[in-house]
């Protein structure tokens, strides 16, 4: 619908002709090396499978324990929700909400929107919502901190190992694999290509 004669780089505003990339090639801005697009024809199915897997794993994560803390017979366990909820009752409500958003709600919403977007592209249902779905996804993306939380778990684990017996629960492993899927999704998400899919779908 919108044939592009020129495109511009988001990092240096260089005007250029739209790239003609072959399968698997990556187009970079000639001046500042900003990534413009990376073309994969298998992208859409891979992306869908990683996003769905991620969502399932995220659901699994809520069902089990994240880790167990055992100090001479005093045992306590936490799950994903509790890591935020305890702060909520300690009058750190903003922080609890923030943490929950960063580690759970935003990543889940992003994956749901991506799945919904791909399904809508594939089936042609709900074309009217596609642009808003994409805009919303890209606004939320920088705020999901999945990998940072994973490092946070590891840091607190190492911190506590010296004073108590620590065990990692199923949720931790699910979250770790989810983190991998999420990272995969991030590398496969390509703005340039997404908007092309929309153009093709509306044509």
């Amino acid at each position: 619908m919108f044939s592009e004669q020129v495109i511009a780089c988001h990092h240096c505003d260089l005007l250029m002709a739209p790239p003609h990339v072959k399968e698997g090639e990556c187009a970079l801005c000639p001046r500042c090396k900003h990534k413009i697009t990376r073309l994969h024809h298998s992208n859409i199915n891979q992306l869908l499978s990683y996003a769905v897997t991620g969502l399932i794993l995220l659901f699994v994560t809520t069902q089990f324990n994240l880790m167990t803390f055992n100090l001479g017979g005093n045992v306590s366990q936490i799950d994903l929700w509790q890591s935020a909820i305890n702060m909520y009752f300690d009058d750190y409500k903003i922080l609890a909400v923030l943490v929950l958003f960063f580690i759970f709600i935003l990543p889940a919403l992003i994956l749901i929107l991506i799945v919904a977007f791909i399904l809508s592209i594939k089936t042609g249902i709900g074309c009217w919502a596609q642009t808003s779905m994409l805009r919303l996804t890209f606004v939320m993306m920088p705020w999901a901190m999945v990998e940072v939380f994973l490092v946070g778990i590891l840091v607190s684990l190492v911190k506590l190992v010296t004073i108590a017996q620590m065990d990692l629960g199923w949720s931790f492993w699910a979250y770790a694999v989810f983190c991998f899927c999420y990272a995969k999704v991030l590398t496969l998400v390509d703005r340039y290509q997404f908007w092309h899919w929309i153009d093709e779908a509306h044509r």
Binding site: M67, I78, S83, G152, I153
Partner: peptide, 9 residues
């Protein structure tokens, strides 16, 4: 995040 986990645990 570390504080959040320690507080919960």
């Amino acid at each position: 995040f570390v504080v959040a986990i320690l507080v919960a645990l």
